[in-house]
Amino acid sequence: MVLSANDIHCSYGSSDASIKVLKGASISIKTGEVVAVMGPSGSGKSTLLHALGLLERPCKGKVLICGEDGWGLSSRRRAELRNRKIGFVFQFHHLLEEFTLKENVMMPCLIAGETSEEATQKAESLLERVGIIHRSSHFPSTVSGGERQRAAIARAIIMKPEIVLADEPTGNLDSKTSLEVEKLIMELAEEGNRSFLLATHSHDLAGAVHRKVFLNSGIIKKS
């Protein structure tokens, strides 16, 4: 298993007015598997992804990434695990505005301590792959939404992570661009035998994945 989460509980707010978002969610993802998490707004899809991606510590439960207990590690080791094993794609791309698309894509390599030359080479090759090499020196604010999301996807996979967590990757795109991004995600998953966990509302995207699960009332139900 690339990712395995068991009995994840998450809540927000103080103990008096706490909102329980996840009430024992469990999920497992195999290598190369593309899974879609579906559910209504506010059902906790983003919270689940953040907990699985080691960004939000769950109140209870265990997250294993390639067999390692993510939340049992030191913060430094956890950061390293995020850098090397997990890729993130956000709904609003979340590219760093002060950096060009190429620099954004290079960022995980630079964080990992790779040289600028190595990172540049990898970033250019990925930008070529996702079809935006001509925009490599552009800043995010000067390119289209689809191009930004492609750059965000390239950034998520540059470290060849075991799993990519994508939070509504097409949620902010028009239908044509959504289809292109969906196609790209499926191609990349196949090319790298890479696992994807996609939180989405899109039935088109959900229709293309290997497996769908539903998040309702804080619990994951199989399709």
């Binding site: 991606g53 913060s75 950061a79 390293e80 995020r82 993130f88 979340h94 760093l96 964080i111």
Partner: peptide, 16 residues
């Protein structure tokens, strides 16, 4: 703040 969140998601350590 958001950029720092993104950087942490990419593996930037708290010390960094």
């Amino acid at each position: 703040r958001r950029d720092i969140g993104v950087m942490r998601a990419m593996g930037l350590t708290p010390n960094a």
